[in-house]
Nucleic acid binder design. Structure first.
Lengths: 179, 179
DNA sequence: AGCCACATGTAATGCGTTACATGATTGC
DNA sequence: GCAATCATGTAACGCATTACATGTGGCT
């Protein structure tokens, strides 16, 4: 198996939840997976081409009447197998998120406490923004997909974001007291 | 200012806390900043060269007697200024950490609950490992740097890791019950 | 003799973003 | 008429990792 190629499996996965075009994959990512995954067209289209080469997907070009070209992709049985294998494989390691605020804090000894507190406050407001976004997505999922079985899993991933962000918030509060 | 170039400021910062060689910078990163930042020699040495060009640092080559070449870098006043500016600039956005477990969970509707639970258990053990590492680093910092003023900030960054990892752990426990 | 820690560096490669380029359909 | 949404795609660039290449000093 390749090194990373998570993008590949992300796309295979998206094909199983109703995203059949590159465009709709991007939309889904931006709308509902944005808190733990991102993808750009610069990855999507070349990857789709690659997946075709590997026979993991097939395509049906729709050029019905005047409509623009639209390519609808489907998983092949090979594709399903590849996805299943990946889904069952335990993750090798938890990624390290680079955190610019922590990097700054790490070197903050040279700096006035006042400025450090300002940075923490600013970070707190960013976290708060993020929490608001998460709650908005949650409502959206309830509204738009509430009846679908998949929604359970989608809400779980959101809950992860909410809990860890709240923990970060608690940390900020404590850090401000310690300084 | 350049797009990202966080690496540049990470190196400037490391120069202020006693890491004067590329080698010791890497060691410090691996030992104490590993939970929120990583760096490789492939970045360090080219970046040091660049910082020299920009006159943000200077170098003293030590070739005393038979010893191997060793380059000790120092911040110039320009370098201090650049670092200070960066330290005071509020971060533009909180990074999105790609989370492979969440990606898998997002598509788990097609999969047996048994396998999903296995994935969660495995993730839990990874989180636990990470927590152990964090506590070990905490002890190390107390022991090695406990008297230095910087230690306060270093322990705060660790506390961030501990709190968010514990929150992730709580989430796993809850997710297992929900499934 | 062999291994580990110290120490520096480059080249190939991988992964991803950004900016660009194009064009139809729908709704105001 | 104009903006937004739908829709596909590429080229240049940036950032970082990995593997390679080299060498000393000290300890066992």
């Amino acid at each position: 198996m390749e090194k990373q190629m998570h993008t590949k499996y992300a796309i295979l996965g998206l094909l199983t939840i109703g995203c059949q075009t590159g465009y709709s994959m991007k939309k889904m990512m931006d709308g509902s997976l944005n808190h733990f995954w991102k993808i750009s067209y610069g990855q999507i289209y070349p990857t789709l081409k690659k997946l075709l080469d590997e026979k993991l997907i097939t395509v049906q070009e729709e050029s019905t009447s005047g409509k623009p070209d639209k390519k609808e992709y489907q998983l092949t049985s090979l594709g399903w197998e590849a996805l299943k294998d990946w889904m069952e494989t335990p993750i090798q390691e938890i990624g390290v998120e680079k955190n610019e605020l922590l990097l700054k804090l790490f070197f903050s000894h040279h700096q006035s406490t006042e400025i450090t507190l300002k940075q923490l406050d600013h970070y707190h407001s960013k976290l708060q923004e993020r929490l608001n976004t998460y709650h908005a997505i949650k409502e959206m999922i309830y509204g738009t997909y509430g009846d679908q079985e998949e929604a359970k899993f989608w809400l779980l991933t959101l809950d992860y974001g909410i809990r860890t962000t709240e923990a970060a918030n608690d940390w900020v509060m404590n850090a401000k007291n310690v300084l």
